[in-house]
Design a protein around this nucleic acid. Structure first.
Length: 509
RNA sequence: GGCCGACUAGCUCAACUGGCAGAGCAAUUGACUCUUAAUCAAUCGGUUCAGGGUUCAAGUCCCUGGUCGGUCACCA
């Protein structure tokens, strides 16, 4: 049983009063002929069609929406309702309704209630298109007051929000209230959907087949991350929530599906931050007979096309700085990038020991047990990453942190891999895929050895994946992107929570 | 997980070095036939995140816990 506040008790009393009056506060059916936006458009068209100096033909509509403001003034009441499209004003007047029905609205309806209202559209003296109400009824009573937000439209047309729901926790925990009260939040999530649709359109248009692979897996892999573990009761078998799609999608290339992609949820049992949520939306595609350079080109085409479609241009403002997604993006080798940013030339230090000394000379202290690849990664995040603001492809990664990528011909320490960086953090990760089953098996063993004393990063050997690869896998390029991060860039949100409808939060006490 | 900060009415926020917990909106009542943060008058509304401590006196100081935010660590 909830503890009702004094405001809620008043509303509960109104529900009782309505029922006593024979009115159902939660009727089963509703009716509407137009949304607020449609109604306004129809009325404007009718005004345009009217001959010069003549009043427009009468436009009768039935609207439905949530009451967001009321202004009772005796024999008149003005109210604004909001629906999924926008807002429109209702005008209750004694002339049409009689005093009793005007009073009934004022006495029984509250902010947040859903109402259905029919009547004729008109313009008020101040020029606002308004529904002159001839009939109305309750569609759903709101027991709890919405966390109020009132908008004031200033003379220059800017909207000033008063008493908006701003508390980040409450907004995320009660996203329904956040959405109900903050229209720009609805816009963000509509944009998110538009981005997903645009990504699918792009890949479909390039001949990729969208597929679905298991989320519950007997073995996890394809990334270095701790998994969530669950259990199948009937089979008495532990299962993992996937940490990537990679190993399953590449099995499909063995099966002669040459271009596949999946957009779905990955789960990583790791820290939560402004760019990490335990479950996040990943896009991966695999492309037979392509290499990482072709993937690079397709990536900048895809992201810029999506940006164009969703925002109307190739440039966006992100946290006060302009990002330009126009291809081609800057290409920077790992060696050059790190040399520029830190002064350390990784090519001059071929062992972990030598590289560690070079880093120490710069006044930084990485983990002394780190492999050479991990040290390079340290240099990358410490010096280079923060400088990669405009979209940049950083390419040629150390082999020992890339167990699924193919080595550069003639350079055993380096693999054909790139990551796309934007605004100082990683957007995507791609490589020429390793398709040699013997090399792949050796890499798995290598990972197992290198990380043997670090259970968390141990890469499990996936025998079925190797079996698939032994049937022959075409040379291919593969790609993965955190879709939430792309949404962040295109909606100018600093925190991943702002682009997830229901982000991870700690249990509510 | 470490460090720093925040938490006060349904919402947004005040309250000096410890000294009677306040405002606007929302709500209730009344006035008002073109308002738009409607206005005007009156009224209601509090376990100051929770628990403990110091003190004549705690929203304020101390300790423990919670949640959120920032930051660092972790995240090949």
């Amino acid at each position: 049983m909830p503890e009702y506040s004094s405001l809620e008790k008043i509303r509960l009393d109104k529900i009782d009063a309505l029922r006593k009056e024979g009115i159902e506060p939660f009727p089963t059916r509703a009716k509407r002929t137009h949304t607020s936006v449609e109604a306004i458009a129809v009325f404007e068209a009718s005004e345009k069609a009217a001959p010069e100096g003549q009043p427009p033909a009468e436009v009768k509509v039935t609207l439905a929406g949530r009451i967001r403001a009321t202004r009772p003034m005796g024999k008149l009441t003005f109210a604004h309702i909001e629906d999924g499209d926008g807002k429109i004003q209702l005008f209750f007047r004694v002339n049409e309704l009689g005093q009793e029905r005007v009073d009934f609205f004022n006495n029984r309806f509250d902010l947040g209630d859903f109402i259905q209202a029919s009547g004729a559209l008109m313009r008020t003296r101040t020029g606002e298109i308004t529904l002159l109400v001839h009939d109305y009824r309750m569609l759903a009573k709101a027991v709890s007051p919405l966390p109020a937000a009132k908008d004031e439209t200033l003379e220059d047309g800017t909207v000033l929000r008063h008493a908006a729901l701003e508390d980040a926790e409450l907004r995320a925990r009660q996203r329904y209230a956040d959405l109900a009260v903050n229209p720009e939040v609805r816009i963000t999530f509509r944009k998110r959907t538009a981005i997903l649709r645009a990504l699918r359109e792009f890949l479909d248009g390039h001949g990729f087949l969208e597929v679905e692979t298991p989320i519950l897996q007997p073995l996890y892999g394809g990334a270095a991350a701790r998994p969530f573990v669950t259990h199948h009761n009937e089979l008495d078998q532990d299962m993992y929530l996937r940490i990537s799609f990679e190993l399953y999608l590449k099995r499909l290339l063995v099966g002669n599906l040459e271009k596949v992609y999946e957009i779905g949820r990955d789960f990583r049992n790791e820290g939560v931050s402004f760019k990490h949520n335990p479950e996040f939306t990943q896009l991966e595609f695999y492309w037979a007979y392509a290499d990482y350079l072709q993937v690079m080109e397709l990536t900048e085409q895809m992201v810029s096309t999506v940006c164009q479609k969703v925002t109307g241009g190739m440039k966006v403002t992100y946290q006060g700085q302009e990002l330009d997604f126009t291809p081609p993006w800057r290409r920077l080798s790992m060696r050059d990038g790190i040399l520029e940013a830190s002064g350390v030339d990784i090519a001059e230090h071929s062992t972990a020991k030598a590289l560690f000394k070079a880093i120490a000379a710069k006044g930084k202290t990485p983990d002394p047990k780190a492999t050479r690849g991990k040290l390079i990664d340290f240099l990358l995040s410490e010096f280079l990453e923060p400088t990669l603001i405009q979209p940049t492809f950083l390419y040629d990664y150390p082999r020992d942190i890339s167990p699924l990528a193919k080595s550069m011909p003639g350079d055993p320490l380096t693999v054909e891999r790139f990551e796309g960086y934007v605004a100082g953090f990683e957007l995507c990760n791609a490589f020429t895929e390793l398709n040699d089953p013997l090399d792949q098996e050796a890499r798995f063993l290598e990972m197992g050895r290198d990380y043997a004393d670090d259970e968390e990063e141990k890469h499990p050997m996936d025998q079925d994946y190797l079996r698939a690869m032994r049937y022959g896998m075409p040379p291919c390029g593969g790609f993965g992107m955190g879709v939430d991060r792309l949404v962040m860039f295109l909606t100018d949100k600093h925190h991943i929570r702002e682009v997830l409808l229901f982000p991870h939060l700690r249990k509510e006490e």
